[in-house]
Design a protein around this nucleic acid. Structure first.
Length: 103
DNA sequence: CGGTTGACCAAGT
DNA sequence: GACTTGGCCAACC
């Protein structure tokens, strides 16, 4: 039985490079409505914030396209995403362009 | 088992 | 536009 947290990773793995997803979408993909549980799971993450193998935790952002998270700092996160080919707008991401949706 | 916490979100003040 | 409140769900103590 995989933990909720592991399920988050799996769905997150489905996000293609150069795209981002929101906690909301992940929760929806998991069939739950709790975005919080997703974020919480990531926080208590066994490895940390960065890829634990294949899980691009840095590709997860807020529902408004705003970066959320504290682990490594939003700044670093933004830089990382920019390197992936995502243009960040004043700390925000264009969900219209880069937002990846499940289901 | 109950209470607190949290990388959230939406609505109200 | 910034802050507060309520709600939601899973993990941790």
């Amino acid at each position: 039985m995989k933990s909720f947290n592991e399920r988050c990773y799996e769905i997150l793995r489905k996000v293609p490079k150069g795209k981002v997803t929101t906690y909301k979408e992940i929760a929806r993909g998991l069939g739950t409505k709790s975005y919080r549980a997703v974020g919480n799971a990531m926080n208590k993450n066994p490895r940390g914030f960065l890829n634990k193998g294949d899980v691009p935790c840095h590709r997860v952002i807020g529902s408004d396209g705003n970066l959320v998270g504290f682990a490594h700092g939003l700044k670093k996160k933004a830089e990382m995403l920019r390197k992936e080919g995502i243009k960040i707008k004043e700390g925000k991401i264009d969900l219209k362009k880069y937002g990846f949706k499940f289901r």
